[in-house]
């Protein structure tokens, strides 16, 4: 049974209303680790979005043509994580062979993506909402863009924050969390948009 949600609803929902980082807490490690510099944030966001899209396509095909027909939905965790790990390997290989500049820009982030909960998270969200393949793709791109958006906003704030005179015990991560809290609060203003 497909969920009847329209593509626009899914997309806007994933980008701002149910933002992966701010409401689902997915992809926090790169969020706090990488988000110190704007250029890194964009590269990371693009890489994650791309892998998320591929993973969403692969897993929703596997889900509806292998797991459901053979009644082995319980195997989904093992299969999904293996698919994501292999996808990341393949993408890394292709980028290294074809575009060395892009590889140098994204290279160090690619291995990290396997253990980025946003990627496994989006495949699980798609499965739990019974999204079709097209809906899954839209939700993956939306989720990835939402992740990138928040990463960029956060890196902008943190670049400024580095210059400020923060109390010693708040410096670094604690103040980043408090910033994230305010950011999440302001994003809540978008709920009810659809």
């Amino acid at each position: 049974m497909n969920s009847g949600a329209s593509l626009i609803t899914i997309f806007v929902g994933m980008v701002i209303i149910n933002n992966m980082v701010l409401t689902k807490f997915l992809g926090l490690c790169p969020f706090f680790g990488v988000s110190k510099k704007l250029s890194n944030a964009i590269s990371m966001g693009v890489a994650v979005t791309f892998v998320m899209l591929l993973a969403a396509i692969a897993t929703s095909v596997i889900y509806s043509f292998i797991l459901v027909p053979y009644n082995i939905e319980f195997m989904n965790i093992i299969i999904y994580i293996l698919v994501i790990a292999s996808l990341v390997q393949i993408v890394e290989l292709i980028i290294r062979r074809t575009n060395i500049a892009l590889y140098n820009a994204l290279g160090i982030y690619l291995p990290l993506i396997t253990t980025n909960c946003a990627v496994l998270g989006i495949t699980l969200i798609n499965a739990s909402n019974n999204y079709s393949i097209v809906q899954s793709m839209v939700s993956a791109v939306g989720g990835g863009l939402g992740f990138t958006l928040v990463l960029i906003i956060m890196s902008g704030i943190r670049e400024k924050l580095e210059l400020g005179d923060t109390p010693k015990s708040l410096r670094g991560l604690p103040v980043a969390f408090i910033t994230a809290s305010l950011l999440a609060l302001s994003f809540m203003g978008f709920s009810g948009l659809l």
Binding site: F25, S169, P174, F177, I178, S181, M188
Partner: peptide
């Protein structure tokens, strides 16, 4: 209700991190 919503989670963890760092200091 703020505290059981997502922004509350960030705030509580941020303040606790700061508290433990302060105690450590």
């Amino acid at each position: 209700a703020f505290f059981i919503m997502p922004p509350g989670a960030f705030l509580v963890l941020g303040l606790l991190l700061a508290l433990f760092r302060w105690l450590g200091v």
